[in-house]
Design a protein around this nucleic acid. Structure first.
Lengths: 343, 343
DNA sequence: CTTGGATGCTAAATCGCTCTAGTTGCCGGA
DNA sequence: TCCGGCAACTAGAGCGATTTAGCATCCAAG
């Protein structure tokens, strides 16, 4: 048995297709009695809209697209994305807008999907994550003229809207705190250098190190994996004068680093303080629990949704929203350095 | 400037729409020379297909749907899904079939999405995960007549195809190993009792406990969260005669349990052995590293894709594929119980 | 009694593509 | 020379919805 169409409903009720369309979309053009009968029959026949047909007509797709180009192994462990997705979806579904998520191999594929979805009216707008230094996706989205919101900033995202947290500010607060505890040799196990936020964090550390006159402040780039996080930690702790504090760009790497410290007999927090960018179950589960920069990622996703809906409603609008700066939650992994005896 | 359509191409080349359609889809009906010219112009105009229009005509959507009804907090930490997705996508994209992923609040919403996507021809088939005891989704999918593959089994999924790993066999291997080490009191921190696989694991433990004449073998249900995993562990370890081994239904809960053991001064593995169902970075990162039931989740996803494509190609076909049983990888968290002195 | 404007509805065009049923032109065979 | 057959291509219907133009009908005001 075929799926019912508005034509079937029209026949059944004895009115025209147009009338049915008006009734089902709650717009004027039909009387109350007819409208009620149409809705009744539609329900009985278990009718539901054919989104492809709607899209053809040029109507709203009532969906936004999110394409992520990342190896799944990275994606899996980071609670950040799941939380973000959850918030995003909550915000969108309030206006019954769906979220179309696709995970692809690389940025090339990601841009191709943008083009396809845009030209097929599959979505009304895009959310772009993992802003890179000189990001080619910006240009594609601008060219397509599709509403888009970039997660990340500030700046460097052309004419697109953005929602961002201040990574620089967050990093400064961590460095200040560690310096106040007495740390003079601080290392930073960073993420992919191609990411804008990695760059901002790295630069923040360097800037502040100069101002505070720290003895050492290195950033070691990694690919965000636990393996490279562990390797970087091993290298750092093998030095003659090893750092007394390490800041990790993700919770997974922090956990891996904690493991390496244990394996090398370096006591946390007595001989080494550890701080993680991004908070999650992992930092709380660990022993000792890891001090982390925490933020309400769910709320972040919600804000993203809000901005997205605004931009869709009013194309051409450009919004730049700065969200709350992640705040340092101190747990058991940070303490004054062992050798600290005043300045 | 409007997006180019086949009509534009037809005009430009000087042929009919039909010819263009034939050429672009690589089917007979046009000469080689014309075909080449059409493809050339299509490329120049940067044309790409409008999937909605295709779907309207009743053609393949070249996409499969995966809807997950889970709180994002659970989703985020478990690497299982990301790995699975990755494998699934790899398998599908080999035939350039896309994957449409949606995360929803509950099973009701999930079924609604099934109906919508099916009636809108948005996907050619569905992958269903998290098979429940008496699962209402089975009926919906059968009624829709859409090709579908269930992850989980064996049995209890009506006329739908399935891909599954033998949870029972896996649990038995763990229990046998622990018993061989000398453990007589084994606990099981289980997942949601509504899940089929939770049920199978629980039953396997109970069955084997009888056969091996164990002193104790309890299963404690949880919601898969680290919080409940920790709470269950606390309760178990607070008993007068506490278990000497605990099997956790997920890696996250195992990690949480390990934390609780540390906090209560129970030494792992000397006083307590820990085993995790599902392997990942987390079990390797932990200290001591956690013994876990490991499987190639990526390959699992790939197999899922294969079966999905087969079922789409030949509707009505029913396949039941049993994949490799997860194998126990022994790490540092398992050992003979401290008090063990022969029988 | 006529006119004007709502109101309630219909008919048909439209969106981009696929696919079937022709139509045309050319080649080879009798 | 004529015809059958095939390859190459065209015309146009159809997919399920939206949307616009237009047509009755009815009521109120002049």
């Amino acid at each position: 048995m075929r799926r019912p169409t508005i034509t079937d409903i029209a026949k059944q009720v004895g009115v025209s297709k147009g009338a049915v369309s008006f009734a089902l979309n709650g717009r004027p053009g039909v009387g109350e009695a007819t409208r009620a009968r149409i809705l009744q029959v539609a329900k009985e026949m278990n009718w539901r809209p054919h989104s492809a047909a709607r899209a053809l007509g040029g109507a709203r797709a009532e969906a936004v697209g999110l394409v992520i180009a990342r190896p799944a192994s990275t994606l899996g462990v980071e609670p950040f994305f799941a939380q973000l997705l959850s918030g995003l979806q909550a915000g969108l579904s309030a206006q019954s807008v769906a979220l179309h998520l696709l995970i692809v191999e690389d940025v090339e594929a990601e841009m191709e999907v943008y083009r396809e979805w845009a030209s097929a009216h599959r979505v009304d707008g895009f959310v772009m994550v993992d802003l890179k230094v000189r990001d080619p996706r910006i240009e594609v989205l601008e060219e397509l003229g599709a509403p888009a919101v970039v997660l990340g900033g500030p700046g460097r995202h052309g004419s697109l809207s953005s929602v961002w947290a201040d990574d620089r500010e967050a990093m400064l607060s961590v460095v200040d705190y560690l310096a106040a505890l007495g740390h003079r040799r601080i290392a930073h196990v960073a993420g992919l250098p191609a990411f804008r936020h990695t760059q901002r964090r790295t630069r923040a550390l360097r800037d502040r190190a100069g101002r505070l006159d720290l003895e050492e402040a290195v950033s070691v780039p990694t690919d965000f994996s636990d393996a490279e996080g562990a390797a970087a930690t091993r290298t750092l702790l093998s030095r003659a004068r090893r750092p007394t504090a390490i800041v990790y760009d993700s919770d997974v790497m922090a956990l891996a680093g904690l493991g390496v410290a244990g394996e090398m007999g370096v006591k946390v927090p007595d001989e080494l303080s550890i701080v993680a960018f991004d908070d999650s179950v992992l930092t709380r589960i660990a022993h000792p629990a890891i001090s982390a920069l925490s933020r309400d990622t769910f709320a972040f996703g919600r804000q993203l949704a809000e901005v997205m809906l605004e931009v869709i409603a009013e194309p051409g609008l450009r919004r730049d929203v700065r969200t709350a700066t992640p705040r340092l939650v101190v747990r058991e992994s940070t303490a004054p350095p062992a050798a600290w005896q005043g300045d």
